[in-house]
Nucleic acid binder design. Structure first.
Length: 193
DNA sequence: GGAACGATCTGC
DNA sequence: CAGATCGTTCCC
């Protein structure tokens, strides 16, 4: 049970992303095993960092190991882990986790729905994350952290194109645990090993 | 100053 | 399959 140190995040987002699979995402009593991620980089037209730093994406250009949380569609939040050297504008979107602890709290925050954290915005709702957590340091304490409990990333993650975006769609920068399926892929054919 | 647009989710 | 809902960005 070891919290990941800052140097661990100081790599390219496409390298960190698959390594995040099976790590534990912790916020307060809520713990989830990371099941699906996507990488975003500054040279990537789909990335919020593509057009340089702004007030919204400032934390994406911060130190590796920060949390980047943004509001989407005016009503949902999504959480990212900042990676790479300071100023490089990279992050990994946490798309899904498998609930491990704090399930009661998650159920309450999700209004009793059974699907607690199988989508990026559902996850933020279940874990109680919003814009006030943007820029938080995942390497500072145990209230908000990424933890390695010894389970390694899978040798055979499913790899596919990112979803919900209109540009940069060909890039195979989405990774998911091979099993169990936390969320059915929209198109099974998009996954490959 | 204003318009267009989301790295989504939900219920019809 | 469309509506929700508003901050951010970009263009005039």
């Amino acid at each position: 049970m070891r919290r990941l140190r800052r140097s661990w995040f100081d790599r390219d987002a496409t390298e960190v992303a698959p390594d995040l699979l099976n790590k534990l995402f912790v916020h307060g009593r809520c713990v989830g095993r990371i099941a699906e991620v996507e990488a975003y980089r500054e040279d990537d037209p789909a990335s919020h960092s593509f057009r340089g730093p702004t007030a919204r994406n400032a934390s994406m250009f911060g130190r590796p190991g920060l949390l980047y949380v943004y509001l989407i569609y005016g009503l949902h939040h999504c959480a990212n882990v900042v990676t790479g050297p300071l100023g490089s504008g990279q992050a990994v979107l946490i798309r899904a986790v498998l609930p491990v602890a704090g399930i009661e709290v998650m159920q309450q925050r999700r209004d009793g729905r059974p699907d607690l954290a199988d989508g990026p915005a559902k996850l933020c709702r279940a874990f109680g994350l919003d814009r006030s957590h943007d820029g938080s340091d995942l390497c500072a304490g145990m209230d908000l952290a990424i933890v390695d409990d010894g389970l390694p990333p899978p040798d055979d993650p499913l790899v596919g194109g990112r979803i919900g975006i209109s540009r940069g769609t060909g890039l195979p920068w989405r990774w998911r645990l091979p099993s169990p399926a936390p969320r059915q892929p929209a198109d099974p054919a998009q996954w490959s090993q």
